[in-house]
Design a protein around this nucleic acid. Sequence first.
DNA 1: CTGTATCCAGTCGGATACTG
DNA 2: CAGTATCCGACTGGATACAG
Lengths: 132, 132
Amino acid sequence: MPAPTAVPTVLAADLALPVTGADRAACPTTDVLRRVGDKWSVLVLVLLGRAPRRFSELQRAVEDISQRMLTRTLRSLEHDGLVSRTVFPTVPATVEYALTELGKSLLVPLSALADWSAVHGPAIQAARRAQG
Amino acid sequence: MPAPTAVPTVLAADLALPVTGADRAACPTTDVLRRVGDKWSVLVLVLLGRAPRRFSELQRAVEDISQRMLTRTLRSLEHDGLVSRTVFPTVPATVEYALTELGKSLLVPLSALADWSAVHGPAIQAARRAQG
DNA sequence: CTGTATCCAGTCGGATACTG
DNA sequence: CAGTATCCGACTGGATACAG
């Protein structure tokens, strides 16, 4: 691990982000937020946090996700080590998806954000309505 | 406000999200995540959390954001009540941006996610490299 | 100084059809 | 059952030029 060199950062409410070019491009916070800020990832993570599920179970659970997007979402989550994929060589094939330990741990801070959203979401909605 | 009807939800690590159509579309958690999951919003929030700043100060601080994106980011944050905008009628005009109380409060759960990212970001990077 | 207008490439996400 | 392939509209974000 590189020594903790003095990377320019901003500090606010215990939150630090690098603000200069190369460092900011690799900022793990921004990286995670963009991973999780897409349309379906968090929903899939939460569903898998409840229990491991098969592809078709997920598709039924989410209900209005397209097959393509479910595949893409699962692939990217798997690619980032948040979800595991297990193929059972039945006929036809069955595939089970589950959270990895990494994925489970991510639900904790997401939970904090969900709590904030539940409390302050109405305030955001109100602000939007107030300005058109 | 409608009565708290039994909206189908999934529970995982204290995290609840609606999973059916109309409810999920209005899910405040997904809504907040998508707001914050864009390229610049969190960085701007963090900078403003440190201190109120003028437009040009922000642009210098971020360094590689385009004028267009800074404007758009600030407008959307303002629109959602997270940032305030104060115009001083000098010549030429100066404009100061600051976090609202709502914006400040958002930094708290974001901080939890930043902490997680700092700790587990390397694990994600490793997972990515392991699979190409 | 603080923006707006225009253009343009790349990505996101949905619909549909097809496959082992 | 669990995907892949293709097409396509919409949105994101950058570059550049112009304006109050």
